[in-house]
C-alpha cells in the first residue's frame, strides 16, 4: 500500500507544475455554475417551484454537483492508459510490481485531492458572486451517507474508465468510445440537469445503474433531499463497483496478451 501512497503524493505534487490545468478546472466549475444561473433564472421567471426545487435550491444543487463533477477525473485513466497502449508506453506498467488499476487510481486520486480545494474556492466564489445561499443538509445521517457515497462513486467511475481503457488492447483507437462515454455520463450522473426532472419510470431505471449515485444523489443528500434513497443507493453502488473492479481485472488478464508493445 505504501508504494501507492507514494504515487498519490507524487501526483499531488505534480499538480503544482500544471498550474494552468488547475485554473482550467476552476474555470470549468465556474462555467457550469454560470450556465446554470443564466438558464435557470430564465426558467424560473415568475415561478416559485420547478419539480419541487426553489430557485435557490436548484442553484445549490448545481454548485454542489459542479464541485463534485470537478473531482471526478476518472476519464484521465481511460485517456492515459489507451494512449500508452497505442503508443507502446504501457510496457513499464506491465513490468513494475504494481497493479495498473491501483497505480492510475491513486494517481487520479492525488490529482483530485489537489484540485479539491481550488474547486471548493471556485464554488464558494460563484455562490458569493451570484448570491446563492447554499442550503446544506443539517442531518448528520445524510452527510454521512454522502461521505460514503462520494468516494465510492469516484472509485466506480475509475473502474468504468479502466474497463474502457482495456478496450484499447483490442481496438487500439478507442477515442470514440471515450468521447461517447463522457457525453453520456455527463447526463446520466446528473451533471447537466438534476435527474429529479425526468419521468419517474426513467428515474427508476436509472436507479439500477451506478451513474446517478456518482454526482446526483450525493448532491441531493448534501442539500438535504432524497434521504430515503441513500441506503439502497450505497448498496447498488457498492455492488456495481465490486462487479466492475472484478471485470476490469478479468479484462486486463485476458487482453494484455494482445499488447504489441509498439516501439520496444
Amino acid at each position: 500500500m505504501k508504494k501507492y501512497f507514494a504515487v498519490f503524493k507524487w501526483s499531488f505534487k505534480m499538480q503544482i507544475v500544471w498550474r494552468f490545468d488547475v485554473a482550467m478546472t476552476m474555470l470549468a466549475t465556474v462555467g457550469r455554475i454560470v450556465a446554470a444561473w443564466i438558464l435557470w433564472r430564465a426558467v424560473y421567471g415568475n415561478r416559485e417551484l420547478v419539480s419541487g426545487f426553489t430557485f435557490q435550491g436548484m442553484l445549490s444543487y448545481y454548485v454542489v454537483s459542479s464541485f463534485l463533477s470537478s473531482l471526478d477525473m476518472s476519464s484521465q485513466i481511460s485517456e492515459e492508459i489507451s494512449g500508452l497502449i497505442r503508443d507502446g508506453g504501457f510496457s513499464k506498467h506491465m513490468a513494475v510490481p504494481m497493479s495498473p488499476f491501483a497505480f492510475f487510481s491513486f494517481m487520479v486520486a492525488g490529482e483530485a485531492a489537489f484540485h479539491l480545494w481550488f474547486s471548493c474556492i471556485a464554488a464558494v466564489f460563484c455562490a458569493l458572486a451570484f448570491s446563492i445561499s447554499i442550503a446544506l443538509a443539517s442531518d448528520a445521517a445524510l452527510m454521512l451517507a454522502a461521505a460514503i457515497m462520494i468516494p465510492l462513486g469516484l472509485l466506480c467511475m475509475m473502474s468504468v474508465h479502466y474497463l474502457l481503457a482495456m478496450l484499447a488492447f483490442k481496438f487500439l483507437s478507442v477515442s470514440s468510445f471515450l468521447f461517447a462515454a463522457q457525453s453520456l455520463t455527463a447526463f446520466l450522473t446528473g451533471a447537466l440537469v438534476p435527474l429529479a426532472l425526468l419521468p419517474e419510470s426513467v428515474a427508476a431505471i436509472m436507479r439500477l445503474f451506478p451513474f446517478c449515485y456518482v454526482t446526483y444523489l450525493p448532491a441531493m443528500l448534501l442539500t438535504g433531499r432524497s434521504g430515503g434513497e441513500a441506503l439502497p443507493g450505497i448498496a447498488v453502488l457498492a455492488c456495481w463497483t465490486a462487479g466492475l473492479l472484478a471485470l476490469g481485472g478479468l479484462a486486463y488478464g485476458k487482453l494484455r496478451v494482445r499488447y504489441e508493445g509498439v516501439g520496444i
Partner: peptide
C-alpha cells in the same frame, strides 16, 4: 461523437421542458 453530444443536450432540454412550458 457529435451526434451523441447533441442527443444528450436534447435530452437535457427535454427534461427541463417536461416541467415548464418556456425558458
Amino acid at each position: 461523437n457529435d451526434g451523441i453530444l447533441f442527443a444528450v443536450q436534447l435530452l437535457a432540454f427535454s427534461a427541463i421542458y417536461s416541467q415548464v412550458d418556456s425558458i
